[in-house]
Design a protein around this nucleic acid. Structure first.
Lengths: 173, 173
DNA sequence: ATACTATTTCTGTAATTACAGAAATAACCA
DNA sequence: TGGTTATTTCTGTAATTACAGAAATAGTAT
């Protein structure tokens, strides 16, 4: 499938943005392509569209599956696997939120707790350091609990909550 | 300054985490060190603590200043510049939020709008694609408006809002 | 089974990024 | 002014990452 200029533009931009958030460029590009595609695509069409090697697509897809963002679809009369991404942007957002919590926030919280515990004992580590670690723990715990609550929402509820912006901020403003 | 094992552990972990979010490892490590340090540090002490080259520290500091996370402090009887990071975790969080919005969300929104406009005209680009772009725009616009509102909060208000988790989620749950 | 196609894994290379050390510049002092 | 120290910028190299193509594996059909 030859990409239209619009699709190409989007794919490039999405690749760049993913990149800035620590996602491999090709991975993000494959994701972008699947978002725009009207139907599931087989790997070789992805290669062709993005001008990358077959192996690259294979690995990118695997990575996206690891995130839970892409799944396999089978098409009648075609032995090849076809791939699609989730249709709902909000659902994707919640999935990414959960994954990043699991991969980054949770381990950080654990490390911080270990550090704070050791730090409190260790005479060589100053009070200031211990205090700082505790502040970070408090922050991370709150983030974590938000992420958990958010993840319990349905995609539509998440959307509704975000649309309620003003009301939410009036709670403290 | 020789780091204690606890500090070392934290610095390494923070470097790793920053890395996963698209921040250079050294940059994140310098930031970590400054968070733990009880007082502003001159560049050469940072070199020594982290075992990196002077030039590396110089560039990392510049990067952190670009984010608005580090500032210069002058110390009596010392010609060298000393560096400190913000003390308030919440304030740092809000700053990072604002910066990432400016650097990533805003440009993405602009590109998406351009794509959607061209896509709507272009006969070669399918309706599905246009629709998908519009969904993304809607999502990004809501994210953007949340980020703006959040940024208008004081650090303490932000903290309060996060602590209010249950109340917030009850709005839709 | 064997031929054929799809898919993954492996391997080497290209490209990028990170970073140390050198050189250059700037700031300060006497 | 010249000497001294702090800081930045430049340059080459080391390390990492990205990725194409080859080889290997798995799956399907006849």
């Amino acid at each position: 499938m030859k990409l239209t200029p619009v699709m190409e533009k989007f794919v490039l931009h999405w690749g760049e943005m993913g990149w800035r958030w620590g996602i491999n460029r090709s991975v993000a590009q494959v994701h972008a392509l699947l978002m725009l595609a009207p139907k599931p695509l087989p790997a070789d069409e992805i290669c062709e569209s993005l001008n990358v090697a077959r192996s690259n697509v294979s690995n990118s897809i695997k990575e996206l599956q690891g995130w839970g963002l892409v799944r396999v679809v089978h098409v009648f009369g075609d032995r090849r696997e076809h791939f699609e991404t989730l249709k709902d942007v909000w659902e994707m957002f919640l999935i990414i939120l959960r994954e990043r919590k699991k991969r980054e926030i949770d381990p950080t919280l654990q490390t911080l707790r270990e550090c704070a515990a050791e730090s409190a004992k260790d005479k060589n580590t100053g009070d200031h350091t211990t205090q700082r670690l505790n502040e970070l723990i408090e922050f991370m715990e709150l983030s974590s609990s938000w992420a958990e609550k958010a993840h319990a929402l349905s995609p539509t509820a998440a959307k509704r909550l975000c649309s309620l912006g003003d009301k939410v901020f009036r709670l403290v403003g």
